[in-house]
Design a protein around this nucleic acid. Structure first.
Length: 696
DNA sequence: TCAGAATTAAACAGAT
DNA sequence: AATCTGTTTAATTCTG
């Protein structure tokens, strides 16, 4: 069967959206596997890669490549930097960035709120400010780095002029440079990632300097430790060589943390750079020196740690198919897979290596020769793990923050005053566990799992919600607070011609929600079930196969939204008391709720619907479709009736329902009465006064 | 407590 | 034959 990929209309493109959304991150940073098919069906294969999405692994590779590229350019710049001062002087003029929202707002309010507060030109200006600020920070950072290397090279030249041990020091310098390069790569990687996240709006602009961000993120101690690992290894290697060449080197004074003073003594190569960029071991003094035996202990511990990590992390869950025969090794890996995570495009993907290997065999040789379990590899591994750890921590933090933002914005409608409060909900660790701890629903008002009919309860408009939190749902493994029916309907209505094949619906689910990238057998079954079950979904057969459309009348008829979830809001909205204090999403929610409610009763006229629509600044398909169907004629038929789509239509039989599109006039009186005098009626009455089901 | 809606699981049939 | 699509039934969960 052949399914064509459709271009789906993007729901909302705001100024910030265009900045935040990068083509390389459609799938975002979520590490959810789309292949974890729970063992049920093989349905995961059907949706697969039709979206052209880039997997997180690819993204990481891309970032790594970018980082390497940047590092290379950086070093090249330094080589030529001595003769081209312009590259450093450019940064001398600090960009005038006033203390403004560019610095403050991302932490104080959400991007969505900013969109609501600021006009597009203001947003544009704000974003430009932020970009300028980030650019400035980057420039400053690189300037510092350049100055340091400049100094370093000068010193090196002086010493070379002195003519003592020039060759050896050159060698040492190169080696140190190699490690420095690794550090830079790591920093670049971190920067790239943070910048990417920032572009997506996933990370606030808290770090004022990339290096600072690294320091903040990892902490001075961590960085120091990191450098210790790298430089310590270096010292060991140097010591070995020097011993081999008959030159003794007392490791007890130049050990793990202080190979650097030794090197410094010899060449003066590393001092300024390290003292500025990282918390230099030189400044830490002899107190940080480690006895030789401790260093070996440390190394042994490191080996043990890494091997334990490998066992724990790779052994059981992720690579089960490959680990049947015993402990996982690199050889074991490619024996079964024919591929290797460290090998790709004919290159060794070991950080900083990029050695060309024609085939797997050559790569294995290279891997065993060049990246055996030695100090250097261990240190590199550790660095890499630090990077990964840090990124994970950062990701967790930001996910948490987003969840808190989501929860705050959409689950606490009756407390608009909270929008002015700093979003400190991220500190609530339970947020990450909400899916697995449903009971937390009752502890917080609206904070907790969002399941099933909560969307009805709170009348959250799926269009508005999705438009505002599109990126969130794309990346966070959070169950969307909508029913399958509403999601399917939205997917179909979002399509250009308002029809989708089943597979396209699947794709929409997986594209829009990280949550639906797993357990595919379950939710796909549910989708099919819903399509078949609900009368509002009409299957239309055409030449190419079958597509699904939405019978809007049936949808509205079947499940008129209840407004019991936010009675206060309903009253406020209707009586016009609450507009000032409500944010746009809730105004939109109210508008839609009202429209849907009214429309389901056939009571609203186009002008009032449009005015409501305009009033709340929403033009989303949820409402527009509602307006459209009212506009078409008095009979409330959808703009595109299912009959328009194809040749054959299967009409679902629902014998329990009696078709009755003509509504009682007395109901109108009731509703208008509610609108005019909402406060003197209980909301329960509002519900009860509209016995839609009874009419059907 | 209950009814109804939603979800989940599963069986089955027809189509590809 | 395997997989996808669609229908249907039943059990369970959740909500008002």
């Amino acid at each position: 069967m052949e399914y064509k990929n459709r271009c789906h209309v993007m729901m909302v493109e705001s100024a910030s959206e265009t900045i935040r959304t990068t083509p390389s991150n459609q799938n975002g940073v979520s590490s959810l596997s789309s292949q974890s098919d729970g063992g049920g069906g093989r349905e995961g294969g059907s949706n697969g890669d039709t979206n052209g999405e880039i997997s997180p692994v690819d993204l990481l590779h891309l970032q790594q490549q970018q980082a390497l590229q940047a590092a290379r350019q950086f070093l090249l710049q330094q080589a030529s930097g001595l003769n081209s001062p312009s590259s450093t002087e450019v940064k001398q003029n600090p960009v005038q960035v006033p203390v403004s929202m560019a610095m403050m707002t991302p932490q104080m309010i959400t991007a969505q709120q900013m969109q609501q507060i600021l006009s597009p030109p203001q947003l544009q200006a704000l974003l430009q400010q932020q970009q300028a600020l980030m650019l400035q920070q980057l420039q400053e950072y690189y300037k510092k780095q350049q100055e340091q290397l400049h100094l370093q090279l000068l010193t090196q030249q002086q010493q070379q002029q002195a003519g003592k041990q020039a060759a050896k020091e050159q060698q040492m310098g190169n080696k140190q440079l190699a490690f420095q390069q690794q550090l830079i790569q790591m920093q670049q990687l971190q920067q790239q990632h943070i910048l990417n996240l920032q572009r997506q709006g996933l990370v606030s602009l808290q770090p004022s300097n990339p290096m600072q961000s690294l320091q903040q993120a990892m902490g001075p101690g961590d960085l120091q430790q990191l450098w210790k690992e790298v430089s310590g290894v270096q010292s060991a290697e140097d010591a070995l060589k020097q011993q081999q060449t008959g030159e003794g080197l007392d490791l007890s004074t130049n050990s793990t943390s202080s190979s650097y003073p030794k090197a410094n003594t010899h060449s003066g190569l590393h001092g300024p750079m390290h003292s500025n960029s990282l918390h230099s071991p030189a400044h830490s003094g002899p107190a940080h020196s480690t006895p030789k035996r401790d260093r070996y202990k440390e190394r042994a511990r490191l080996f043990e740690w890494i091997s334990s990590f490998s066992k724990a992390d790779l052994g059981d869950e992720h690579l089960t198919p490959y680990s049947k025969g015993g402990p996982l090794s690199s050889n074991h890996y490619e024996e079964h897979t024919g591929s290797h995570p460290l090998y790709g495009h004919g290159e060794c993907k070991w950080p900083g290596c990029e050695a060309l290997c024609e085939d797997m065999g050559q790569f294995i040789k290279h891997l065993n020769n060049e990246h055996a379990l030695d100090d250097r590899s261990t240190a590199q591994c550790r660095v890499q793990m630090q990077v990964v750890q840090q990124l994970e921590i950062q990701l967790a933090k930001e996910s948490e923050r987003l969840q808190a933002m989501m929860t705050h914005l959409h689950m606490r409608p009756s407390e608009p005053k909270h929008f002015n409060q700093p979003l400190n909900l991220a500190s609530n660790g339970s947020l990450l566990k909400r899916e697995t701890h449903p009971a937390s629903t009752h502890t917080h008002t609206g904070v907790g799992p969002i399941r099933r009919r909560n969307s009805d309860k709170f009348c959250t408009p799926i269009g508005s919600e999705l438009a505002q939190n599109c990126e969130f749902y794309k990346n966070a493994d959070v169950r969307p607070p909508f029913t399958y029916a509403s999601l399917i309907r939205h997917a179909i209505l979002e399509a250009p011609d308002r029809q989708l094949t089943l597979n396209e619906i699947y794709n929409w689910f997986t594209r829009m929600f990280a949550y639906f990238r797993r357990n595919t057998a379950t939710w796909k079954n549910a989708v099919r079930h819903n399509l078949s079950l609900h009368k509002c979904f009409v299957r239309v057969e055409n030449v190419k196969g079958a597509v699904w459309t939405v019978d809007e009348v049936e949808y509205q008829k079947r499940r008129p939204p209840k407004m019991t979830g936010s009675p206060t809001l309903v009253k406020n909205m209707i009586s016009g008391l609450g507009f000032g204090s409500l944010n746009a999403s809730y105004q939109a929610a109210l508008a839609e709720s009202s429209l849907t409610l009214l429309n389901s009763q056939g009571l609203v006229n186009p002008s009032s619907a449009a005015s409501l629509n305009m009033l709340h600044g929403m033009g989303h398909d949820d409402v527009s479709s509602t307006v459209e169907q009212v506009n078409s004629n008095g009979s409330c038929s959808p703009t595109l009736s299912p009959q328009q789509y194809g040749h054959q239509i299967h009409v679902k039989e629902e014998p329990t329902e009696v078709q009755d599109d003509s509504r009682s006039v007395s109901l109108m009186a009731t509703v208008t009465h509610n609108m005019a005098m909402p406060s003197d009626r209980d909301d329960r009455d509002l519900d009860d006064d509209i016995p839609t089901e009874e009419l059907e």
